[in-house]
């Protein structure tokens, strides 16, 4: 069973009389624990699609089923709750400028009222090699550091899905490689990642690539489509009764797309 299903999904802007078609109709499925790439040039509708998938916007017509919920028909309140239980990373980080690093990370759980502990946030910062900048105001961080804080923020609520909107678009090559490694590691740990990008460099990481042009899917490639066993939903999970409680230490079968044999390792002393 797929985690995400889009059925005749359409998004128009403008008025009903003079609609501006931005996306659709599109149809696709995304499986759990997969790494999905949405590729397309500027104006192809990929950001529009990501906004719909992340619950930031609502479709004009069609259905978008995520975790057995039709996002197209959810109320604003329930969409907020959905957003609280996913992770999202932006091209330009979108950190809260008045807060320091760890406060920004904690906001990833506090904003949506999701349970998240300070210790877990500290651990995330440590895992991504920026615990030494935990108390620093985010205005003083470099681009790479900011994006790592953003990744920690996205993960603090232990989401099942991580949405990435051009996560390396504002980074130099060194930091870009670091972020790629991070996302690769997260994918290996079983996190479902959906990334929007115009860069072809991520193709080797993806289980599935959706090509968009002028709002329509022009190509759809599954590289390693296999039936990945779905864990039963854990009803005791505090954040969502439908959320799968994931054991991050449980190894998953590596696919050909994840051909990089390097172990996931972040050098804490990144030369920025």
């Amino acid at each position: 069973m797929s985690l995400i299903s889009a059925i005749d999904l359409v998004k128009n802007y403008g008025t009903k009389k003079n609609p501006i078609k931005a996306l659709g109709p599109v149809n696709f499925e995304i499986h759990s624990k997969s790494f999905t790439l949405i590729l397309g040039k500027s104006g192809s509708g990929k950001s529009t699609l990501l906004n719909l998938l992340a619950g930031l916007d609502k479709s004009t017509s069609g259905s978008l089923i995520v975790q057995n919920k039709n996002l197209s028909t959810l109320s604003q309140r329930k969409l907020s709750k959905y957003r609280a239980n996913i992770g999202i990373i932006f091209q330009f980080y979108n950190l809260l400028p008045n807060l320091n690093s760890i406060e920004n990370v904690m906001m990833g759980s506090w904003a949506g009222g999701v349970e998240g502990t300070y210790e877990y946030a500290e651990q995330l910062l440590k895992d991504f090699g920026i615990d030494h900048r935990a108390k620093a105001n985010v205005k003083t961080l470099s681009g790479g550091e900011k994006q790592r804080v953003a990744i920690c923020r996205a993960l603090v609520s232990q989401p099942e899905i991580l949405f990435c909107d051009e996560p390396t678009g504002a980074l130099d090559s060194t930091n870009e490689r670091q972020v790629i490694k991070i996302l690769q590691g997260l994918s290996q740990k079983g996190l479902t990642i959906i990334m929007v990008t115009h860069s072809q460099e991520f193709r080797s990481l993806a289980d599935q690539i959706i090509y968009l042009k002028d709002g329509l899917i022009t190509d759809h490639k599954n590289f390693n489509h296999q039936q990945i066993p779905q864990e039963e939903p854990n009803p005791n999970h505090p954040s969502s009764p439908n959320k799968v409680h994931r054991n991050p230490d449980e190894p998953l079968p590596l696919t050909n797309s994840v051909a990089n044999n390097d172990n996931f390792n972040i050098d804490p002393k990144i030369n920025l």
């Binding site: 309140r77 907020s80 709750k81 957003r83 609280a84 979108n94 906001m107 904003a111 923020r153």
Partner: peptide, 16 residues
């Protein structure tokens, strides 16, 4: 406005 957008993206409701 951006701060509002970020908070909403992180799950804050209109009421918040």
């Amino acid at each position: 406005q951006k701060e509002i957008g970020i908070l909403k993206a992180l799950g804050a409701r209109n009421w918040d």
